[in-house]
Design a protein around this nucleic acid. Sequence first.
RNA 1: GGAGAUUUGGCAGAGUGGUCGAAUGCACCGGUCUUGAAAACCGGCGUACCGAGAGGUACCGGGGGUUCGAAUCCCUCAAUCUCCGCCA
Length: 423
Amino acid sequence: MLEISYIRENKEHVIERLAHRGFDGREVIEKIATADENRRKVQTTLDRNLAEANQMARKIGELFKSGQKDEANALRAQTGELKESNRQLESEMHAYEQELKELLYHVPNLPHQLVPTGKTAEENELLKGGGEMPQLGQDALPHWELAQKYQLIDFELGVKISGAGFPVYTGQGARLQRALINFFLDQARDAGYREIQPPLVINEASGYGTGQLPDKEGQMYHLERDDLYLIPTAEVPITNLFRDERLSHKEFPVKLTGYTPCFRREAGSYGRDVRGLNRLHQFDKVEIVQVAHPDASYGILDEMVEYVKSLLDQLELPYRVARLCSGDLGFTAALTYDMEVFSAAQQKWLEVSSISNFETFQANRLKLRFKDEHGKSKLAHTLNGSALALPRIVAALLENNQTEQGIRIPKALVPYTGFEWIN
RNA sequence: GGAGAUUUGGCAGAGUGGUCGAAUGCACCGGUCUUGAAAACCGGCGUACCGAGAGGUACCGGGGGUUCGAAUCCCUCAAUCUCCGCCA
């Protein structure tokens, strides 16, 4: 959520930056400005009236105490009118506040200067990647066939017990999952991230805090009976740890990591790249989250990108980095880097990580503040990234490392899998 | 799931209708004293919003109500604790 004070003072700039994103914000920003002005006007009047009412009440008390009963009752009779108008002003102010909040909830974050202009993922800015492209033979199999051949993943069984998009991992396939999770968590810990094991369901307030609600409601599984949501990413519970918190600048940087399954309804994306592990309703992911001083957040974003690269290097996967263009940028992000690995049998680049700086967009909703060097209270910056999401990593590992004698496990993973080959 | 108790500032804890944004202690910050520190003493010390400022308003778990006036009374929701039941 953008800060109202910022919008108030930089209206044209905000509209211009939103336009860069392909978001026509003129009308809504004007509405916001009007609602804000109205709210303030009403509050000024209301505050003055409340002050008057307070004074009268005090006087009545004094009169009663000193035994001037008639005077007190006379004054008491006068309060009705003021009270009624205050009641009205109060509900008026409440309505403006509500309107303002509703409007603000639907305005996306302002893209950072580095965000390239573009409409679709095609226009993302490709940056230097790494790793070597594998040379596979003609008979190379896609991962869903390899998964079947080596009995690593059973998609049909998943359909039976849950539905499409809920695979069952078996044998070496299950062990590979566990190995990757442990590998990623250990790496994160070595990089200074503190491990968190958060709840997998969240309440409504948390959904609002990180920006899943109100807009992406349809993307989350909702447990109606208890009004809870299954997390779509660990970002939500971990970032919400800081909701309504006030940090000291001395605590920065706050670095947290956590492994969780992620649940996504993926409504509307059926039929597109859904084969095998490419798109699932439940998948595993290790997430990294940072809460940072605003002056440091972009340095930290770069550092997080470098960190994720180091993971891909160790997994010996060819990857590229994309700076998301304005059209592809998520609602809450100011700047996002996507990491994609090449899945050689499918001949496709698969997104395995998304690393973003949200600046104060989430912090404003979360009321996540810190006290700076001068004791002033300010909103912090929040960042997060996948490090990493498993399914597409597994897809690439299986496809890229297939040989006649089986699938080779990268060296860095062997201590975690306990086997060098899948065969 | 049932019954009872509780929820006040960073923490502890007073406050049962008026002068309470809230005693007191601890913690914290500044000062005096001291070579320095501790102790002692003095002073300060919540958040948000409105206002150019003076100042004002709101907030005592959340929401609503009664009243001229609510931390205090009523309703409701939530959380915590104790006991009972059920259960990994």
